[in-house]
Every structure is written in structure tokens, then in C-alpha cells.
């Protein structure tokens, strides 16, 4: 989380944050607020829900969410809701083949399934963008949705099939090295050294040795 503190503009009046009285301490108030958020059961529930939704189902069973958000034997800083804890849930295994892939998952899994060496990720990034999920380009702070309702549509399916067709016939240059800025400039400006009928520019006099 990025946070900004400008001392002169800070409001030093007493504040109440989620029912807690904050000490008027300037920049440290932000740290205290983050601590309150980290210790809040609502935060644990929210993260547990997100984990369960990612690994299990769009609407995960409430008992699973509750279990993932429960502190480990009295230690309020440890939750079983870590990725490792969720992965070992039987429900994760049962959900295999049910979660609809996001565009990111779909494109990356297609590249993995194809087994082709990927030296150039730009076509894949472009495909992810065309499918509606530009990498790190979500406009809202809550991030991309991880549900079927957000991604499954006739238009999206058509686009995915188009990508699959182009990718399968080798229409995406993922194996070639990406064109660098230097290469682009060279193509338009370079003169082949041994091309007949062309004269090379004389060397710069200021840099030439006497």
C-alpha cells in the first residue's frame, strides 16, 4: 500500500478509526491504522474469502471461509488461510475443472500446454489485453474479478477461440526475440556496409586521429 505523508498538511486533531482512538502522532497514525486493519477479524475474513474463491469456487462455502480465517490456536498473527493451507483442502481437489480461467490463466496455460519456448512475451501480453485483462492494468483498486460471471460471455469465448486458432497455427511470434528499440532504429537508418553503389559517410573530422 502506498501512502503519503505531508507534515504541514496533516490533520493532528483526534481521530477514531474503526472504533479505535488514534494517537495524534502524525505519520505514525498511518502505521497504527495499518496495524488496526491487520488485526481486524474482517481483514482475515476478507482475505480468506479471496483465497477460497481463487482456489475453490466463485461462491466458496462459508464454513471453509470461516475456517481459513480462524487464528491458529490463539495466535492472532497466524492464520491457516495461507495458500499452503488452502491448497491442502479437499475442496480444492474437488473443484478441479470447475473454475473458469481468467484471461491471464487461459493465455499462460495455453502457452504451457503448447510447450513452445517463449522468448517474446509481447504477443501473449497483447492477447491478455485483447481478452480484457491487461496485465497490471486494472483501473479499480480492488483488482480484476476472479469469477466466471466476470469473464464468461459469447464475445469473450469467440476471442479465446480466435487466440487459440492463431496460437495453434504458429501465428503468434512467441519464439522470436522481441524487436528492441535499437533494432527498430537500425532497420530504418542502417546502411549495409558492403552494398555496391553506396558510399559511406566520411569519418567525423573532430574524432579522427591526426
Amino acid at each position: 500500500m502506498r501512502r503519503c505523508s505531508k507534515g504541514a498538511r496533516h490533520d493532528f486533531s483526534p481521530k477514531v478509526f474503526l472504533g479505535h482512538q488514534l494517537r495524534s502522532s502524525g505519520k505514525a497514525e498511518g502505521e497504527e491504522a495499518l496495524d488496526i486493519l491487520a488485526k481486524s477479524p474482517a481483514t482475515a475474513r476478507h482475505i480468506s474469502f479471496k483465497l477460497a474463491q481463487y482456489f475453490v469456487a466463485d461462491e466458496p462455502p462459508p464454513p471453509l471461509v470461516e475456517r481459513l480465517g480462524r487464528p491458529v490456536s490463539g495466535d492472532r498473527r497466524r492464520y491457516p488461510g495461507g495458500a499452503q493451507g488452502a491448497v491442502h483442502q479437499q475442496r480444492v481437489l474437488e473443484s478441479y475443472g470447475h473454475k473458469y480461467k481468467t484471461p491471464y490463466h487461459f493465455v499462460v496455460s495455453a502457452a504451457r500446454a503448447a510447450g513452445v519456448p517463449v522468448n517474446n512475451t509481447r504477443p501473449l501480453l497483447a492477447a491478455i489485453s485483447q481478452l480484457g485483462m491487461p496485465l497490471f492494468g486494472c483501473l479499480t483498486p480492488d483488482g480484476y474479478k476472479n469469477t466466471e460471471a466476470a469473464w464468461l460471455s459469447p464475445d469473450a469465448t469467440t476471442r479465446r477461440i480466435s487466440f487459440a486458432t492463431a496460437f495453434a497455427r504458429g501465428g503468434l511470434p512467441v519464439g522470436s526475440l522481441p524487436r528492441t528499440r535499437h533494432a527498430v532504429l537500425s532497420d530504418s537508418t542502417a546502411t549495409p556496409p558492403d552494398e555496391p553503389g553506396r558510399r559511406r559517410a566520411p569519418p567525423n573530422k573532430s574524432s579522427a586521429r591526426p
Binding site: 470447475h98 473454475k99 480461467k101 495455453a110 500446454a113 479465446r160 477461440i161 496460437f167 495453434a168
Partner: peptide, 30 residues
Amino acid sequence: MTGPTREAIAEAPQALRAALILGSPDFMRR
């Protein structure tokens, strides 16, 4: 996937077969 569908995919050219697999509803789920 039905038997005839699976056979049709098996007989298809390699690129088409790959496209059919990558574009199948099964592949769109994880």
C-alpha cells in the same frame, strides 16, 4: 468429450487439433 469428437480431433491436422484443444470448453476451466 464424446467418442466421435475425440476421434475427429485425433484425425485432424496437428494445428487444428491444437486449436480445438486450446479452444475447447474444458481447457477454459482449471
